[in-house]
Write a protein that binds this DNA or RNA. Structure first.
Lengths: 253, 253
DNA sequence: AGCCGGCGATCATAATATGAAACCTGTATT
DNA sequence: AATACAGGTTTCATATTATGATCGCCGGCT
């Protein structure tokens, strides 16, 4: 819920390196070899090995017994899910998500920024399966999501989060930084952002930011669904409900 | 999937300390102050502070803007869920869980050990809601679960995992180490373990271990439900299906 | 106003992490 | 079968990096 980016601290190099090793594991590369890890983290093989051992001894890293490859460990799964379920914003936002999903019939999500992506903290589906939250924990690039655009529009120095170059996910994805920046004023004016076929062909969404007690941007509420069910007119109507929810969710008075 | 416990490594003190700081956060204490963290981790306040900053800069730690209290961060949520969903055992076990749940009508789970507890890696409910996996990511004490008992019975030096003293969850919980150890031979003989009202009053379960390619114990498959629906006779019958599933799940032909 | 509890910064000290090199082990290659 | 290779693991001298006692700071409480 950082309103300010925390300064990279001195005197904790080893801890930082260990964390960065963990972050090298992605859904696309769930298993990595020592050499790869060392190169990607910019570490000496010995150093990487030592840190990985430490992480392994705590269960944050595990190894494929057969291949010897490193992968993320069970303790990390436990801690991650725990972090998710004990998140106060998530708990507070739940009823609002339910209401948004019920009233719109579409899927409502709560998302927060993680590095250069938006993480789905919670999700309530609309007309389909109730209770299913299949996408909780997944991440999407900031520049292609409505929630991400809302975030960089309203957060101080939000643009710092954008990766370079902006990856293209569909033919509609905005990959020019200038073009993206030119949308921000409009988003600030309306109070919400939109994505139409930019993330995935046939998917549209709208989103607005959620603020904390000090007015700092914590994340975003969003509603999303099939593009053909969400023309501009309907997006505009749903946005009103979204803005109301975000306002009511705000703690400060 | 450690068949051997990894030796606590030298030369990675800072990384270890950082990880241990993270582990101080529990569902019961999701927010902690610097002082508490330092004391519980056995660290100097300065050291704890420095490490926390490093973790915060990477999004593993976050702070409650209002109170200043430390809590687990968003990057950890993302990484934890990612670890969960990219777990190969989980993917492989899924169809077996579904079959067990369908055939028994009860809830089937896949669990793995994390420190002194069993973590629910995946879950398929039986007759009730399909697809709901409400308990994935939660942990239970090893000594009170059928999966935990199966684990310590079949794993080399499994007893090392037991905490001391054994906490009591219900009046039936086995809290004597000797009594627990005396059950292990029986479990090894039958091939599966049971828990009856030991974890929660009215809940019973059976479990057997899952092994990896090298014969090492990876975790446990279990079936659980209301005690009144699961008398000894039925538990025995279900155990056969459980053992078969565990055998078929085994990779090494 | 003044106090108090908690967080954050500083800095001399030495403990700790570092990485080059050598070693080992199992797998492909000739 | 012998050899080369690719990856993992261990070692150890070096100095970089982490450490923690102390002090300063800020914001709430009385």
């Amino acid at each position: 819920m950082a309103v300010t980016t925390v300064t990279p601290p001195p005197g904790a190099q080893a801890a930082l390196r260990a964390v960065r090793l963990l972050k090298l594991f992605t859904p696309a590369r769930p298993e990595l070899l020592l050499g790869e890890l060392a190169v990607r983290a910019g570490l000496n093989k010995s150093t990487a090995h030592r840190l990985l051992r430490a992480l392994q001894s705590e269960g944050f890293i595990d190894r494929n017994q057969a291949t010897g490859a490193y992968c993320l460990g069970a303790a990390l799964m436990a801690l991650g899910v725990q972090a998710l379920s004990s998140n106060t914003l998530r708990v507070r936002a739940r009823p609002f998500l339910q209401r948004l999903a019920r009233e719109s019939g579409e899927t409502a999500t709560l998302e927060i920024p993680v590095d250069d992506s938006m993480l789905i903290l919670d999700e309530v589906a609309g007309d389909y399966v109730i209770g299913a939250a299949a996408n909780v924990g997944t991440r999407w690039p900031i520049h292609a999501t409505s929630s991400g655009k809302a975030l960089i529009a309203f957060e101080d120095d939000g643009l710092r989060r954008l990766q370079d170059p902006l990856p293209s996910l569909t033919v509609k994805t905005v990959v020019s930084r200038e073009q993206l920046e030119s949308q921000l004023a409009g988003i600030r004016g309306k109070g919400y952002a939109e994505t139409v076929d930019e993330l995935e062909d046939g998917f549209s969404g709208i989103a607005t930011v959620v603020r904390g007690g000090m007015g700092e941007v914590l994340g975003a509420l969003s509603i999303g669904g099939p593009t053909q069910r969400l023309p501009a007119s309907r997006r505009g109507r749903l946005a009103a409900a979204l803005l109301e929810a975000a306002r009511d969710l705000h703690p400060g008075q």
